[in-house]
Amino acid sequence: MKISVKVIGYLTKDTGFSEREIEIPGEITADELLSILNIKKNLPILVVRNGRGIKLKEKIGDGDRIVISPFFSGG
């Protein structure tokens, strides 16, 4: 399964990239994806799947566009 991942802000420090397609073994949770990408959960994180915010326990599957960002609280 392939997903498209975009990582925003300081989280790129953990992942070493900001945007790429990655292969996943099957459906995984958002939380599992964060572990695969070595993203440390020092602060709250936002995960957006196909433009909609999701919880960390929610599933990610083939063809999804995932955007991972800090939980912005606004300038």
């Binding site: 925003i8 802000g9 300081y10 020092n42 936002l46 957006v48 433009g51 955007v67 960002s69």
Partner: peptide, 24 residues
């Protein structure tokens, strides 16, 4: 120290631009 650990000020407030674009 929290800032250094997280790296928030690497992009500061501007990280939100890509997010706003993604969520329309």
């Amino acid at each position: 120290e929290i800032d250094k650990k997280t790296g928030w000020s690497i992009q500061g407030t501007t990280g939100v631009l890509a997010w706003c674009n993604e969520v329309a």
